[in-house]
Design a protein around this nucleic acid. Structure first.
Length: 534
RNA sequence: GCCCCCAUCGUCUAGUGGCCUAGGACACCACCCUCUCAAGGUGGCGGCACGGGUUCGAAUCCCGUUGGGGGUACCA
């Protein structure tokens, strides 16, 4: 009925030693299934698991739950590794380094088989030959009788099969799944204490769930693998999505039948998305921002995403800045119990703050890495003038002129790209609308004059005095009162003249202060850009 | 259908019976600062889903309703 196994249960129990960890240390895991990309909700639960484990002096690891080979997506595991690395939620336990692996369930088939045999031997499991059609038939009968669905009671046909009947079917070549023989007490209640939600009581499980699937691989179901793996791997705190709450009764029964201590459970509220006017769970298929790739492509610093997520879990952390909050472990009993909507505007706000606090070298390095993958032209330009972007991010650092233009690397081109000669497109038409309607002749004269008169000047105030002088020479009023007194004497306001200079230097009506960009560009480049319009 | 989870400004939330004519953050609006933008400052808009209880007193406790989410697979 089952493939042979080399070992017995005692062997595996001995092979997986108890962990020697300090009192109160939590061992947690993140157990994604490689059926697609990593979901941002996955990063959320992984981060909580990691934070709680580390905060308690325990361990966090990643286990790949690839028991459903039919739905497995190629390269998913590689994508996982990339995402984990980006967000800093890699496993504490590397393959081969430690005795609790392997960490991929498809490599653990022998172990599951051993424990299934044990269950069979003790009468807590039995083979079931029902086909999909049989199951559908049972379902239909239950619907008609308004009975609870599932494989239980009078509907559990194969549970009563005699040994001879089983032999007969096996002999006829029928394939069997192995079902858990659940306690069949329809009135029973199951109670457990959730580390986030407190006591939860529900109907106990009466369903003879499948523990081992059919097919050549003879893989376990999630339920069974969860019990066996988390027991053997020493997990004492299972943090997972809320959708698992209703499976807890089955899991508790499985742990008991196997003679294992059940872990503590903590069920995290799902991340939601506003769809029209209603909230719904973020969907892998429908929502691009559900994928971690979205955040990586946009170039959000991992610290920003982590801080945003941490604030969703524990709102007190949201009041701290990212660096401070990162030092404080997430507290399960402070986790919110209702699903939060992912608010990208909030993330952007946090990201801008995070970038503002980042080390300049780290920023430049991060932009390089991001641009190499998502904007190669920008990467090349940045590398040929290595100091330009660095200086741009340095504008006003630590002063009241501190800027927060950039929260994700995809914004760099738009905000600071003009500082790179290879990205900048000179403005050559004096009638360009970006000049705000200033007479083309005046634009030309202003540019020519400033190109000649301009001198480098480190003091921002003194630097801007040059613009004031320039504006005065070309009949721009220094303030509104002046203009009002004698409207015919002026062609515009100081600000209009400054804008002409800005457009010439930045190619945009919006930029950091003129003195700052002129200092970054250097006098030669400033003159070159001014003269482009002459 | 049955079972479970959840419910405070648009969003994330503080609130654990009197400190609440409900506080903060993001977003939005206005003003200030100002060479534009960003940032920053000040102010504004805006909420306890509904109905019953319990209590001297309820956003807070209980019940119900409604609404939202999830489960009910040889998916995780």
């Amino acid at each position: 009925m089952l493939p042979p196994v080399e070992h017995d249960v005692a062997h595996w129990e001995a092979r997986y030693p108890a962990r020697s960890l300090p009192e109160g240390a939590q061992v947690t895991r993140f157990a994604p299934s490689p059926t697609g990309f990593v979901h941002i909700g996955g990063v959320y639960t992984a981060m909580i698991s990691q934070s709680v484990a580390h905060g308690s002096g325990g361990t966090y690891f990643v286990r790949i739950e690839d028991t459903d080979r039919a739905r497995e997506v190629a390269d998913a595991v590689e994508q996982f590794d990339r995402a984990f690395a980006y967000f800093g939620i890699e496993s504490d336990e590397a393959l081969g380094q430690v005795p609790w692996g392997p960490y991929r369930q498809s490599d653990r088939a022998q172990i599951y088989l051993t424990y299934v045999r044990e269950l069979l031997r003790s009468g807590r499991a039995y083979p079931c030959f029902c086909t999909t059609d049989d199951l559908a038939e049972i379902r239909a009968e239950q619907d008609a009788a308004k009975a609870g669905t599932g494989y239980h009671g009078q509907w559990a046909r194969c549970r009563a099969l005699t040994d001879d009947a089983v032999e007969g079917r096996l002999g006829a070549g029928l394939s069997a799944v192995i079902r858990f023989a659940a306690p069949d007490d329809p009135g029973a209640r199951a109670v457990f204490t959730d580390a986030i939600r407190g006591e939860i009581e529900q109907q106990d499980n009466v369903n003879d769930v499948v523990v081992l699937k059919s097919g050549e691989h003879r893989m376990p179901t999630y339920h069974f693998a969860h019990a066996v793996d988390d027991h053997l791997m020493g997990v004492n705190l299972v943090i997972r999505g809320e959708e698992w709450i209703s499976s807890v009764p089955v899991h508790l029964q499985l742990f008991a039948a196997l003679g294992f201590d059940a872990p503590t459970y903590a069920h995290v509220a799902p991340l939601m998305k506003l769809d029209g006017s209603s909230k719904r769970k973020l969907s892998k298929r429908k929502d691009p921002e559900a994928s971690v790739d979205y955040f990586i492509e946009k170039g959000y610093p991992a610290a920003a995403v982590r801080h945003y997520l941490a604030g969703l879990a524990n709102s007190n952390l949201a009041e701290l800045d990212a660096a401070e909050a990162a030092e404080i472990p997430i507290a399960l009993d402070r986790c919110s119990v209702s699903g939060a909507l992912v608010d990208l505007a909030k993330l952007d706000d946090i990201a801008a703050d995070v970038v503002a606090e980042m080390d300049l070298d780290d920023i430049v390095a991060a932009v390089d890495i991001w641009a190499d993958e998502f904007d190669v032209d920008l990467a090349a330009a940045a590398r040929s003038e290595p100091d330009r972007l660095r200086s741009a991010f340095a504008i006003g650092r630590g002063t009241d002129r501190q800027r927060k233009d950039v929260g994700r690397w995809s914004q760099v081109r738009l905000v600071f790209g003009f500082l790179l000669d290879a990205v900048f497109a000179p403005v050559t038409d004096p009638a360009d609308e970006r000049f705000g309607g200033v007479d083309p002749d005046v634009v030309r004269a202003l540019a020519a004059d400033f190109a000649d008169a301009f001198v480098a000047e480190p003091d921002p105030t003194l630097w801007f005095e040059q613009v004031k002088a320039l504006a005065g020479r070309h009949r721009f009023a220094l303030n509104k009162a002046q203009l009002k007194d004698d409207p015919d004497a002026y062609v515009g306001l100081l600000k209009d003249a400054a804008q002409v200079v800005r457009v010439l230097l930045a190619g945009s009506t919006r930029s950091p202060e003129l003195d700052a960009i002129a200092a970054i560009l250097g006098p030669d480049e400033v003159r070159r850009r001014l003269r482009a319009v002459i």
